[in-house]
Amino acid sequence: MVTYILCLMLFCVGLYCVLRKRNLIKIIIGIGIMGYAVNLFIILAGYRAQSRAPIYANDQIVARMVDPLPQAMVMTSIVLELSVTLILIAIAIRIYEKYGTFDITKINKLKG
């Protein structure tokens, strides 16, 4: 239970970072933290007590193993997050080039 609460706290830290920080790079880091928290939650959802990794080999008999499907999901979502992070960084670099700052309060050409 403590693990789940810590996972939720990690998610909230990421959300706080996205909502409150004024630096573009810190916002991107916050999005990363949120993604890690959700990935951690998915892995926790597939965990079973005292079981081992779901690798199947001919010479081994696996009695109890964790649910392998969440791990496949996490692989996919990590790759998606990687691409989102890259495109965000690319846009942030272009914004720095155009505005000369990473501060979102100074990047305000568009209003409402």
């Binding site: 890259l86 960084i89 690319a90 670099i93 272009r94 720095y96 080039e97």
Partner: peptide, 10 residues
Amino acid sequence: AIFVALVLLS
């Protein structure tokens, strides 16, 4: 390619 793009973008 992404690395090159990010390095050369500026």
